[in-house]
Amino acid sequence: MNPKMDHDAAQALFNDHVDGELGAEQSAALEAHVQACESCREALDQLRTTVAGLRGLSTPPPASDILQGVQRKIRKRSRGRYFTRGFATSGYRVPYEIIALLMVLLMVVVYFGMASLQDLGAVSGAERGHAEDRERE
């Protein structure tokens, strides 16, 4: 413990003291100085009061619902991709990549389906031609 702590040394410790970050020995030395020194006592009291006032500051509640505001903005900026009303808010969303892959698969199926229908049509046309040829013969 240092009972001969001067003003400058004492005031340099005020912040840590208010924050409760001083060791026991330094804290005791500071308290001893403050008890004997009116100007330091007053300065420390004012700092404590100031910090206590800051810690007690209240916050008014927001006037509007923050979540709704956030959802509205995201919906607008994503052009309806997120936070659209209805089933899309269930939390599950099909990724665009999967949708694209399914579209490609569908196009392939349709293409081959149409191609096979055309083949069938061509085969039946040919068979009809052969049958007509046979009838003529």
């Binding site: 923050i66 979540l67 959802q71 997120y82 808010t89 269930s90 939390g91 599950y92 969303r93």
Partner: peptide
């Protein structure tokens, strides 16, 4: 997951505000 986002907003909105 939009529900997870909603929970996070509700959890932290007072502190952030």
């Amino acid at each position: 997951d939009e529900r997870a986002f909603n929970e996070i907003v509700r959890l932290y909105e007072a502190k952030v505000f």
